[in-house]
Amino acid sequence: MTPSSVTRPASRPRPADEPRSVARSALRLRTFFAERAPTRIYLTYAVLWVLALQGTLAVLAPESDWRLGGSLLAEIATVYLALLFIRVVDEQKDLEYDRQYNPDRPLPRGAIDVVELRAAMVLIVVAELALTGWRSPLLAGWLLLDLGYICFLVQLERWSARVRDRIFVNLLVSYPVQALLSVHIWLSFRQATGTGPVPDAVFGALLCACVFLHYEFARKTGARVVPGASLYSNVVGRRGSTALTVGFALGAVGLALALVRPWELHGAVALAGWLPLSALGFVWGGGERFASLRTPTWPPGPAMGFLAWCYLGVFITALVVARPGFGG
């Protein structure tokens, strides 16, 4: 998940011979994360992703003793830090592209340097091991696999022009990062509840994939071809990319409704079950603005709104249906 870039005033690059201060680097990193990984977006995404996926698993396994407690909070923190790690790696991986198309971003303009970003990566890994190791060696190992795969992608793009330059191939090899995190959330649920069959995990992962891919295609769908830009619409055209954007949203909502089949329920449970359907309002709003050519790309606000509201709707449904306990 990558928030839209915001133009910032140019910062003075740090000369190579300037002494490196821990306090100064910490301040630069804090500024970097505030700009490129705002807490209100990244933490909200982590919270809703974990709650929605674990809520889905709880609904599918009614015998589970799903609880809103310490293990859940630890998993949210784990996913949040993984998202920060992804952001840090992506900034380094996309440096050459950003120098041409996004020179105002922190790394190209010299507001942060690669050494500081790699130091942040090390600190994140240490924190992740602390968050997962006490819960389960499997959780720690699976997370290291995901973080290692993220780093491998940097080398893969350097080795393969096909992966680097073909956006659909790039998506094919990079989406497993998100999928591996979904599996981690499932493993955390299993570790905490003692249940969670594989078919349930597949259903939950598909729902999360559709939600994420709606956002992914939306933010890279343009009204016209932009040579050299990373846009799906450059490959399949405006209509094709729009169809993928809308199609994944419909798939996500369809799976969310199939989770509890609200048409078979009554009262508050039925009302909660229909809630994810209202997320399509964001798709309509974004599509209307884009179709009227008021924005050069599909507006990111409605795409983020769909992601957040769909996940929130699934979680509220899980609260009503699964009725989790608290603590533990």
Rank of each mutant, 00 (worst) to 15 (best):
P13D: 13
I185S: 07
V253E: 00
W49M: 13
Y80N: 00
S4H: 10
V114K: 14
A258Q: 09
A10L: 12
V173E: 05
G237I: 10
A61M: 05
S174N: 15
V314T: 02
S233L: 04
H184D: 06
V198N: 00
D17G: 04
P324R: 07
L271P: 03
V22G: 02
Y80W: 15
S4L: 03
L107H: 07
W284H: 08
N102C: 10
L73D: 05
G69K: 13
F85C: 04
L43G: 04
G222L: 06
V320H: 06
T44H: 07
G251Q: 07
L81R: 00
I76C: 02
P199A: 04
H266R: 12
P227D: 02
G55N: 06
R87P: 01
S230D: 15
L143Y: 00
T193D: 11
L293P: 05
F168Y: 12
A291L: 13
G286T: 01
E157P: 08
E18S: 13
G194I: 12
L117R: 03
P227T: 10
G148D: 04
R239W: 11
S160R: 00
R190C: 14
D113Y: 05
S64M: 04
T7R: 13
A119I: 15
V125N: 13
I150E: 11
G328N: 07
V47T: 08
A318G: 03
W298Q: 03
V79T: 02
L73S: 04
G141T: 11
L255T: 02
D113C: 02
R166W: 07
Y45P: 02
A37T: 06
Q191V: 14
A218N: 07
D165P: 01
R239E: 12
F189R: 03
P106H: 07
P137C: 01
V126D: 03
V236I: 15
S160P: 00
G281H: 08
L147R: 15
P324S: 04
A16L: 13
E63F: 09
D65T: 12
H214S: 11
V211Q: 07
L293R: 15
L293F: 12
L139V: 01
F282E: 05
V47F: 12
Y311D: 14
T31V: 07
L172C: 09
E157S: 13
V314W: 01
V211P: 00
L29P: 13
V59T: 10
R219M: 09
F152W: 14
W284V: 15
R36T: 00
C310P: 06
L83D: 03
W142M: 12
G325Q: 12
R24Q: 09
R105E: 01
S188D: 07
H266M: 11
S292T: 11
A127L: 11
L107S: 04
W298N: 05
S21H: 11
E18V: 04
T31R: 15
L81P: 02
T242I: 05
T195I: 10
I112V: 15
L312I: 08
L84C: 13
A23D: 13
L187Q: 09
S25G: 11
S21L: 08
P137N: 06
A127E: 02
G328I: 03
